[in-house]
Amino acid sequence: MEKFEPVIVAFCCHYCAYTAADMAGSQRLDYPPNVKIIRVPCSGKVDAIHILKAFERGADGVYVAGCLEGDCHFKNGNLKAEKQVQYLRKSLDEIGIGGDRLEMVFMSAGMGEFFARKAKEMTEKIRELGPSPVHTQLEQQARQKAS
């Protein structure tokens, strides 16, 4: 079997995690290319449907990265995002994808090293969990179509 390369979607707040990712790049820090970054104006802007759609289209893991507590540019969007993530983890268990595949992380714009570390940790965690059942089925369907 080919080596499993997880697809991970990271919803990153413009004011912290996205800038932290930029800083990781400026610092020449390596982090896995599995992590696909989507910049959002605030982690609180990430809706449940964005996360569910990511999994429906084959993501193996998703994380929402927002500002440290008390630092949200919009007051408490990061805490709202955390509540939503906790709620959605239960939904993902119900769906059969598994709530472990979804995480909330907090960081500041200056935490480039943390961003790179978190990206590595998430990639390793999802690699261990294996492909999401949706991903497996989508690949199977694509193979059947091709043959």
């Binding site: 449907i49 569910l52 429906e56 119900e94 769906i95």
Partner: peptide, 20 residues
């Protein structure tokens, strides 16, 4: 909104079980 969420949840759950 809930229609969208349920639709996506059902799609993923059925797909996981091998049913389109």
């Amino acid at each position: 909104k809930e229609v969208g969420l349920l639709s996506s949840a059902l799609q993923s759950a059925f797909l996981s079980a091998g049913k389109s």
